[in-house]
């Protein structure tokens, strides 16, 4: 079957999708967006958390067809999403005008930027560690806070946690620790013991209130 949806503000289309394919599979293997992670594929770990029409969901539990004509935000689009939210005209949630700057439909099984799905071997071979301590304007505040607080170790849980934490901060500007724990209780992390993740969310909230 053919599936159309808007992902991170860009229209995406995939053909020959098997009916049993999950949204996670289509994002990772057909749209070239492997940022959403495949830690359990059972809806238990939260590593594939994405926003579906604004609501955090486990992409592994959403059939690709269920996402037809809907808006999806993944970790890859989190920075743009946060930027649009922070601009005065931007509404909350990925509205239909969270638009595609480049326009035009993405080709089947191609990334919107023309790359093949997944991460190619040559890209993987030539990744270069970026210098630390360079606050990047390309990051959403919650992403920067995760780096600064040491909330990233292996990083496999990170994309899902970022999407969930960003959603929490969107609706709760000053979350208590209990709020943070409740909001992130569907996201497993095996490396950190969660202390630095709490720190990161506290940090992002504090920075937002300072900047407000």
């Amino acid at each position: 079957m053919r599936v159309n949806m808007t992902v991170n503000g860009r229209p995406q289309e995939a053909d020959d999708v098997w009916e049993g394919e999950s949204l996670l599979y289509v994002l990772r293997e057909r749209f070239g967006l492997p940022g959403s992670k495949n830690a359990c594929e059972q809806g238990e770990c939260g590593s594939c958390t994405v926003r579906l029409d604004g609501v955090p969901v486990c992409a592994c539990l959403v059939a690709a067809g269920q996402a037809q004509s809907r808006d999806v935000v993944t970790v890859e689009g989190l920075a743009d999403f946060a930027k649009q939210r922070s601009t005065p005209c931007g509404g909350h949630g990925p509205g239909p005008d969270a638009g595609d700057a480049t326009g035009g439909g993405a080709g089947r099984a191609d990334r919107a930027d023309g790359l093949a799905p997944g991460i190619s071997i040559s890209d993987a071979q030539h990744w270069q560690a970026k210098p630390a301590e360079s606050a990047s304007p390309e990051l959403a505040p919650v992403q920067q806070a995760f780096i600064d607080a040491g909330a990233v170790q292996c990083g496999f849980c990170t994309p899902g946690l970022l999407v969930a934490a960003d959603e929490l901060l969107e609706r709760t500007s000053e979350p208590s620790d209990a709020d943070i724990r409740e909001a992130l209780s569907g996201n497993l992390c095996r490396c950190t013991g969660y202390e630095t993740i709490l720190d990161a969310v506290r940090l992002a909230a504090a920075r937002a209130s300072e900047g407000a």
Binding site: L33, P34, G35, S36, K37, T74, V75, E76, L78, A79, I119, D123, A124, W127, A129, K130, P131, A132, E133, S134, S136, E138, L139, Q143, Q144, F146, I147, D148, G150, V152, G155, F156, T158, P159, L162
Partner: peptide
């Protein structure tokens, strides 16, 4: 800070 931190928070780190 981790040199791979940015890649890991943007979803670009190649697992």
């Amino acid at each position: 800070l981790r040199p791979d931190g940015t890649l890991k928070v943007t979803g670009d780190f190649a697992y």
